[in-house]
Design a protein around this nucleic acid. Structure first.
Lengths: 196, 196
DNA sequence: CTCGATTGTCTAGCGATGCTAGGATCGAAT
DNA sequence: ATTCGATCCTAGCATCGCTAGACAATCGAG
């Protein structure tokens, strides 16, 4: 049985290699540059190998998205935790969360696109939503739930706050809003939306 | 000179035809279905004709975006005006604006994509930004400027409010947020963000 | 009215895309 | 040693955005 196990392990390794290569290529040159041919070349296999792991390019995007969701959740939790121990109130935590979210979007644009801009074939906001996505939302909810305000549904509040952050992230990154007032916009969102 | 004028008129007509066909095709089957071949077939000309009017597909998207910006500005102004005459205060006007914005995004997804999701090669938030885009932002500003609150820069406030709407529009349309609480999210954004 | 020149349009084709069929090759099991 | 199944690659398909070059229609000068 050891032979089969080795093969499975090698297969899993190669799958991770594909996802890592796709992500790296996307971060370097954008998702448009992630073609199946280039990707195959980077992993030093032929094109059809990709299709023995994934249905197609869309599923590769989805895999990068799932990986990214886990990292984003960790980044958000780390930021809020740091703001908590730094003797900040809920207000400081929410600010830290917002900044961490926007920083992540800014510094990992390809991952952010895979998550929220492109179609990775993933289910969002449903029962069959993959765990990493649910967890990323949970990370938002953990911090934002406590500032939803009286009688305001925490999930709904989190969705709204998230939408505001998403709008800021995408519009500024696409050059549709000037970057210079970004910090003020973030503060405005936190000040007004959060009930503190 | 009449002959040249006629030719110019026909050329302008055909350009409008291209833009209209692109928009129609995009609304019907999404922008992915808008290929230069299909577009050429719809206008009953060959492919290269498109390139005598536009540099490429990107510019066609840009043209649809500009057309859409004018319509969006009109829709937003109509909504706020209606809310004004209906004896509503600033609060009612802002709510009407938000609903009109989201309605537009929902009912003209292809135009909304051309404006804010795809690359139409247009300059945003700059001096050389095309007038229709500036005007659409102005339509937002006219309504939102009066609820920015004390000491808050109206433009910056408008950008922030717009980002929130954009986030709601895109996330719900991509199925990343459930549609059922949409109305509550809009009210939350209006209630909290606007200083009334 | 005739005849180059210009303008306008089309056919055909280029390189690249995502994806797949079919053959070759390699290793495990008999 | 030989079969047989899994694994992988070469080659190719249809389609994409875009363009070169041929062809026809139109215009202005003689």
């Amino acid at each position: 049985m050891s032979v089969q196990e080795r093969k499975q392990r090698e297969r899993a390794d190669r799958e991770r290699l594909i996802v890592a290569a796709a992500r790296e290529l996307a971060e370097q040159q954008g998702w448009d540059a992630v073609t199946t041919r280039r990707l195959a070349e980077r992993i030093e296999y032929s094109q059809p190998v990709l299709y023995s792991h994934f249905r197609g390019k869309r599923e590769i995007i989805g895999a990068v998205a799932l990986e990214g969701a886990t990292e984003m959740a960790a980044a958000l939790r780390a930021a809020t935790a740091a703001a908590s121990t730094a003797a900040g109130g809920p207000r400081a935590r929410v600010t830290a969360l917002a900044r961490a979210y926007l920083d992540f979007a800014e510094s990992h644009p390809a991952v952010y696109d895979a998550l929220f801009q492109l179609d990775g074939g993933l289910a969002y906001a449903q029962e069959d939503t993959p765990a990493p996505l649910k967890d990323a939302f949970a990370a938002l909810l953990e911090c934002l739930g406590e500032v939803a305000g009286e009688g305001v549904h925490p999930e709904m509040f989190t969705e709204t706050f998230w939408a505001a952050l998403h709008g800021l992230a995408t519009l500024s990154r696409a050059g549709r809003q000037p970057r210079e007032f970004m910090e003020q916009r973030v503060e405005l969102v936190v000040d007004r939306l959060a009930a503190v």
